[in-house]
Simulated assay, not measured.
Amino acid sequence: MADTPCLGVAICTFNSADVILDCLESLLASTGVALRIVIADNASGDDTVTLLQDWAAGRHAYLMPENCPFAFTPAARTASLPLDGTASPGLPHRIRLVETGVNGGFAAGVNAALAVLAEDPEVDRFWILNPDSMVPPDTARAFALAQGPEAGFALMGGRVVYFDTPDQIQIDGGTLNRWTGVTGNLNVRGPHPGAPEPDPSDMAFITGASMVASRDFIATAGPMPEDYFLYYEEVDWALRRGALPLAYCPGGVVYHRAGTSIGSPTPWRPASPFSLYFKHRGRLRFMGRHFPAGVPTALLYSVAKAGQLLLKGYPVEGWTVLAASLGLPPSARVRARLSPEAQKRAF
């Protein structure tokens, strides 16, 4: 229908076979909105692409996870679902699969999806969403229609909740210490529902797990910076917004399985060496780029963090933090997670 709002969705996948169908099925159940979904696959080494093709063709039945934290009805399909961005009978949503051919990192995948979406003049808002997320049926419409500031907005966030503990918030918006580069999560582990909405003026960035970019912002800031490979690209991107403010959508709730592919930290486990290397390398790279006066303090933080990990019995993790912060090459264990071509991009 002509009055149905349109929202672009950019999803970067890498070895996401265990989560991507949950994400897509929940998106297809979105009501009151027409979604233009572009999946950019970063040369997954698992069967992500084959699974998507089988699912779209009706050869793979979808089973909703038993612990899904909200109710939804998977979309009924009477025919195959095209993965070329064309319309599917009976569905207002469209999906396109793009194979990038190489794992160029999170931002590279997102940028590939955004470039395709930008060609559609109907799309003015671009929702960057992690594949290990599930979304209630009214979330997409909330993002499509949320009233931002009168002069427009750069990036809009909502509430990201832990999938496995859906009464706990993961992040309501990001904060930044400009002397150490350490980021924080507003309302982290706060109650959902129940925690008050954050003030967008308290935010330094919007989490890359779920953020909506305006077309005006992308025109101002350009593509997401790709040289981080993982982590800090969304923090850097937010600082490129000029006069455009950040915004918050109260109805933009997403349930996130944190760190399924790269081993990000959760309240129950430390980050993997792979995650730690890119996070702390990115933090120092970010500080050198935007707040060089804080680099010495940022390095002191790294020493303290490494010592904390060593004292807790995580020697590999502790030395990884130091190596990353000092710009040293990663360990063979970290490099082994990436293909030779991806290593050229990452290191």
Rank of each mutant, 00 (worst) to 15 (best):
A75M: 13
R94P: 00
F153R: 01
A17V: 04
A304S: 03
L300Q: 01
P89Q: 09
L322K: 09
T180K: 00
L28A: 05
T4L: 05
G158V: 14
R337G: 04
A298E: 12
Y162S: 06
A298K: 00
A342E: 01
P267V: 08
E99T: 14
F14Q: 07
G32V: 08
F278S: 05
L299K: 00
P137G: 03
L114P: 06
G101T: 04
M1G: 10
R257E: 06
F72C: 04
I218Y: 15
S30E: 07
V321D: 11
I37H: 12
F70E: 02
F153T: 01
L326R: 00
F274P: 04
A324I: 00
P267S: 09
L155A: 00
T180E: 09
C6G: 02
P136W: 14
G252K: 06
F163W: 13
A324N: 06
A154I: 12
T175I: 00
W237R: 01
A151V: 08
A219E: 15
G104M: 10
L300D: 09
P296G: 06
V212P: 09
L328Q: 13
A75H: 11
R94L: 11
T48D: 15
N42W: 09
P193W: 08
D216C: 02
S210P: 06
P92H: 07
D138M: 06
T260M: 00
A29P: 07
H280F: 11
V33F: 13
A247H: 02
I169D: 14
L52H: 11
D227P: 01
A71S: 06
P69R: 03
A342L: 10
T86K: 03
T50P: 03
D120Y: 15
A61C: 00
L63F: 05
P223I: 13
V295L: 07
R77T: 04
D41V: 09
L230D: 07
I11A: 03
D124W: 10
T78A: 12
F229K: 13
R159Q: 02
D54T: 02
V19I: 04
V254E: 05
V160Y: 05
R94Y: 08
D120V: 02
F217A: 08
Y228F: 15
A87L: 05
W237H: 15
G184R: 08
E197D: 15
T207Y: 07
C68K: 01
I171P: 04
G173E: 06
A142D: 07
G8E: 11
P149D: 03
G194Y: 08
A247C: 02
E25K: 03
F153Y: 14
G105I: 09
D41Q: 09
A76N: 00
N187C: 11
G252F: 10
N177T: 05
K312A: 14
S30R: 08
A34C: 07
V188M: 01
G105W: 13
R257W: 10
L63N: 01
G318D: 01
Q343E: 14
F291C: 04
S214I: 14
A304M: 05
D227V: 04
Y228W: 08
Y162H: 15
G109D: 11
M211Q: 01
L239D: 05
L326V: 10
N130I: 07
T183A: 13
